[in-house]
Design a binder for these strands. Structure first.
Length: 747
DNA sequence: ACCTTTCTAGTTTTT
DNA sequence: CTAGAAAGGT
């Protein structure tokens, strides 16, 4: 052990050797935080503490797996609990389900399930989902749950008309979940937090988990904060690690104040700062620091590294997203020539939809890539159907699941029949499965419908006999006996069938990995999959992911695309200083993933919802010095490529209509755009982009979809908006916000 | 009951 | 643009 300590810095050693009492580790990016946590767990065990008494809470399952492996490498006894907040909650709620007043095999509802349930709830209390959109309601409800606020408390706070209605929906939704034997993601946390108010149970858990570690503490919400506090209430052996500068989940209730106030919560806490960076070149670190310095609400941290200098960070400009995508493949290929492997490269973007043009370009360039999006697979229709069947097997009260599969494949059970069954369930107050098993007692049903429902119930009952088999087996028989297999095999699109095979594989994998496999546990596990869980370091391919999913990872080469106003920072984050700072932290997280090579890129126009819009560079670029600016001086210009459309549509093709041709031209690289024009105000001196300039200049001819042709009279911008005054040919003179105006730049 | 067509509304980030 | 819901026809 001493030998292991010797490899750590003084600060790291302090954190590792601290045993009893609260500990806060403020760890800058790349400062060896994971190393500290794993060493600390090893050290605790080495000191004679039983692994069983140690609980480490990570942010993703992936992180938990990795940590488990790294601790296993110390060759110490195993048995520590390492998991996420959500899976900890799911486990404990299952274990103590009676105390929590839950069925043992509750369902866990994902986004779509939640929407369906809240929709049903809204209708049930005779409100129109049109006026109370499920997604919006869920946002509000989620916020409540994160703050441990009950419907009654919400109603007391929001006394306005709409607030009262939302409170009713919240309450009806909870009732609906209860009736379905289901919990949503937020419920998992909320129920655990509430459970911990029971002193008997809390004492028991305090005794079990005598040492508690919480990673990424800056991203805990109030509920998680209460859980952490409750779990360590008696012994106070709470170790929180994190970095306020990497707090990027404020939008889902994370409270950066939790980490900032740790010292107030635990006045006797030992504080350790890890400021030496072992990951990035001085250039990368310097850029990150320049960016994050602009945030006002933060704890100043001085990051430093003793790594040797690398190459300058780059900023690259492109014509549009397709151009940018090809810029990406070029860059990746040039790095490959410099002896980097593809698996050492990553591309980050702000929103998932930005991956499309990238994928296309990567396929065309035959560069292997993986999209790190774990949840996507489980959102496919056929997979959701299969999971709904499986859920139904262990929880027949699950109305959302039942509704989903009762008529898939079609069994002649339509909406009317389903409606009547549910109505009966609601009015009689009986469990759904009781009604299904005694379908003759539903008076409103036609005989034919009864027969069909009975047939369906027989299928489910038959499947339920085999629940003690391996999960792979259960999934396979379910696929067969429900008729899903014949349905999907008859489809000329083979993907759905292949996907179910993939699901079978995942079940087999689970059977292998788990000590005591059960369908319930398997379902719980896949319900809590996160995007980053899909990252495969061994795959040998370039990784594509959102900036959020990039947290906790590192790559020798990193490209961040779409560094534009409205994207980074995102348009929905512009209205408050706090959310703007969070966007800055998000970019900070992205930048600090890079070990050696870092490039940011942006496009001058980007297709948004079918329309190509002129963009503005991100204002975050303004404060950055020392970026090596690469303009795309039409490296992709190819006049041979100009097909017959070019001449015919020349005046139009400079405009939005360009994008209409795009989806169809797989082989043709999208026709490009002529010579680069000095469309920026100060192109000449932008070697380090010191200002956020736009691609317009006075007197420029433009076209607006509504107002027609016009000329730019003046341009002005503040931090958040860029306004242009345009004199239109119709006589109108308008001031337009570039963010919204769909302007085409004409010659 | 079910299929097709039409329309409308919603578009950040995620456990 | 695209997915999902309402509407209308068979």
């Amino acid at each position: 052990m001493d030998e292991l300590l010797a490899k750590l810095t003084a600060a790291q050693q302090q954190a590792v050797t601290h045993i009893d009492g609260p500990l806060l580790v403020l760890a800058g990016p790349g400062s060896g935080k994971t190393r500290v946590i794993t060493h600390r767990v090893a050290h605790l065990i080495h000191q004679g503490i039983r692994p069983y008494n140690i609980l480490a809470i990570t942010f993703t399952n992936k992180a938990a797996d990795e940590m488990r492996q790294r601790i296993a490498a110390f060759n110490l006894p195993r048995g520590s609990t390492i998991c996420t907040f959500h899976s900890l909650a799911a486990r404990l709620l299952r274990e103590f389900h009676e105390k929590a007043d839950l069925p043992a095999d509750f369902s866990i509802y994902d986004d779509a399930d939640q929407r369906s349930a809240v929709r049903d709830a809204t209708k049930k209390i005779e409100l129109d989902p049109q006026n109370f959109p499920p997604a919006q309601m869920l946002n509000q409800i989620s916020a409540c749950k994160n703050d441990l606020e009950s419907p009654e408390q919400f109603a007391a706070r929001r006394t306005d008309f709409r607030g009262q209605k939302i409170a009713l929906i919240y309450s009806a939704y909870q009732k609906q979940l209860k009736q379905n034997g289901a919990l949503d993601f937020d419920d998992l946390l909320m129920k655990l937090a509430l459970l911990l108010r029971d002193s008997e149970l809390r004492d028991l858990l305090n005794q079990r988990f005598r040492y508690v570690l919480v990673d990424e503490y800056q991203d805990t919400n109030h509920c998680q904060y209460q859980i952490a506090r409750g779990l360590a209430l008696n012994h106070r052996n709470l170790c929180a690690t994190g970095d306020p500068d990497q707090s990027i989940y404020g939008w889902r209730g994370a409270d950066i104040g939790n980490i900032l106030a740790f010292e107030q919560d635990y006045p006797d806490a030992k504080i350790v700062r890890l400021e030496e960076n072992f990951r990035s070149t001085p250039q990368v670190l310097d850029l990150a620091d320049q960016l994050i310095r602009a945030n006002k609400k933060r704890k100043i941290k001085k990051l430093f590294t003793s790594l040797p200098p690398g190459s300058p960070c780059e900023l690259a400009e492109f014509e549009d997203e397709y151009d940018e995508a090809r810029g990406m493949t070029d860059w990746l290929q040039s790095l490959k020539e410099q002896n980097l492997e593809y698996r050492q490269m990553a591309v980050f973007y702000r929103v998932n939809s930005m991956s499309r043009p990238l994928e296309e370009a990567l396929r065309r360039a035959t560069i292997p890539y993986q999209i790190v999006r774990g949840v996507e697979f489980f959102q496919r229709k056929e997979i959701k159907d299969m999971i709904a069947y499986l859920r139904l097997l262990i929880n027949l009260s699950d109305q959302v699941a039942l509704k989903r599969v009762i008529n898939r494949p079609t069994r002649g059970i339509g909406q009317t029949t389903i409606g009547r069954i549910f109505d009966h369930a609601n009015s009689s107050g009986k469990d759904l499965w009781q009604i299904l098993n005694n379908i003759d007692q539903v008076p409103t049903l036609a005989n034919a419908a009864r027969t069909r429902v009975k047939k369906f119930v027989a299928i489910i009952a038959d499947l339920q006999k085999n629940l003690n088999q391996p999960v792979r087996q259960i999934v396979q028989t379910t696929y067969k006996k429900t008729g899903m297999e014949s349905l999907l095999k008859a489809d000329k699109n083979e993907d759905p069938h292949d996907n179910v095979c993939e699901l079978v594989n995942s079940a087999a994998q689970y059977d292998n990995d788990s000590e005591a496999p059960s369908l319930a546990e398997y379902l719980q596990q896949i319900a809590l999959v996160s995007d980053s869980d899909a990252y495969d370091a061994e795959s040998g391919s370039v990784s594509l992911m959102t900036l959020h999913a990039a947290k906790g990872l590192e790559f020798p080469a990193v490209l961040i695309i779409g560094v534009e106003h409205g994207l980074i920072p995102h348009a929905r984050s512009l209205d408050s200083e706090d959310s703007l700072e969070e966007e800055r932290r998000l970019l900070f997280v992205g930048i600090t993933r890079a070990q050696q090579k870092l490039r940011l890129s942006f496009a001058r126009r980007r297709t948004n919802q079918g329309a190509s819009l002129t963009t503005i560079r991100s204002e975050f670029l303004r404060t950055l010095q020392g970026l090596d600016f690469q303009q795309s001086l039409s490296p992709y210009e190819d006049f041979n490529d100009a097909d017959e459309f070019q001449d015919e549509f020349q005046p139009i093709r400079r405009n939005n209509y360009q994008s209409h041709h795009r989806p169809h031209q797989w082989n043709n690289s999208p026709k490009k755009s002529k010579k680069r024009r000095p469309t920026s105000i100060d192109d000449s001196q932008t070697s380090t982009s010191t200002r956020s300039d736009i691609n317009l200049q006075p007197n420029q001819l433009v076209r607006h979809p509504k107002f027609g042709l016009g000329r730019v009279k003046s341009i002005s911008s503040d931090r958040e908006h860029c306004f242009v005054v345009i004199q239109f040919n119709t006589g109108a003179r308008k001031t337009l916000d570039l963010q919204y105006a769909k302007l085409d730049i004409l010659d």
